[in-house]
């Protein structure tokens, strides 16, 4: 039985990441000595330190008497997946996916995709409203980023831009 879930998993996370960095440094780079350090020295030492800290946190979590408010609770999968998906789809819209031959669709398409997908993460999705918000954002972004700041972002889909 884990007493303080939040601390226990934090500790486990640190052990995992710290250990990972330490192993990676050890295998991938020259560690060297305190006198002549290699590129692996600093990350190796830090990785070990992080793993030790993580272990202490996790062990202390087991001994912790208080249990109130230390449960992790349910993971909000819907917002988590949709917000991250919206972000990734924006990347796909701007840069395309060369590996499967998908051409870039540009900023305007990207804005509508991001707004729609992100809005789905909320609990009050209304098509018309989201459409209007997208339109306003598209106009503002065009003005701010393309007209005024002249950022080098493809604006229109490939079939219009060429």
């Amino acid at each position: 039985m884990i007493k303080n879930q939040r601390d226990f998993y934090s500790g486990a996370l640190f052990v995992l990441v710290g250990g990972g960095f330490a192993v990676w440094s050890y295998l991938g780079y020259r560690i060297g000595t305190g006198l002549r350090m290699g590129p692996g020295y600093f990350p190796f030492a830090l990785g070990i330190l992080l793993a030790i800290l993580g272990a202490i946190i996790a062990i202390k979590a087991q001994m912790d008497g208080s249990t109130g408010g230390t449960r992790i609770g349910a993971v909000a999968w819907r917002p988590l997946l949709l917000i991250i998906a919206a972000n990734l789809l924006f990347g796909v819209a701007i840069g395309g996916l060369p590996s499967i031959g998908l051409p870039p669709m540009g900023l305007m398409v990207g804005i509508f995709v991001v707004t729609f997908v992100a809005s789905l993460a909320g609990d009050e999705f209304q098509f018309v409203e989201v459409f209007l918000v997208s339109g306003v954002l598209a106009a503002l972004s065009y003005l701010a980023f393309i007209v005024v700041l002249r950022l080098q972002i493809p604006v229109w889909p490939f079939f219009i831009a060429e």
């Binding site: 395309g96 060369p98 031959g101 051409p103 870039p104 490939f158 079939f159 831009a161 060429e162």
Partner: peptide, 8 residues
């Protein structure tokens, strides 16, 4: 450039 190839 990529796009042109696809179009053609």
């Amino acid at each position: 450039m990529h796009a042109k190839r696809i179009v053609s």
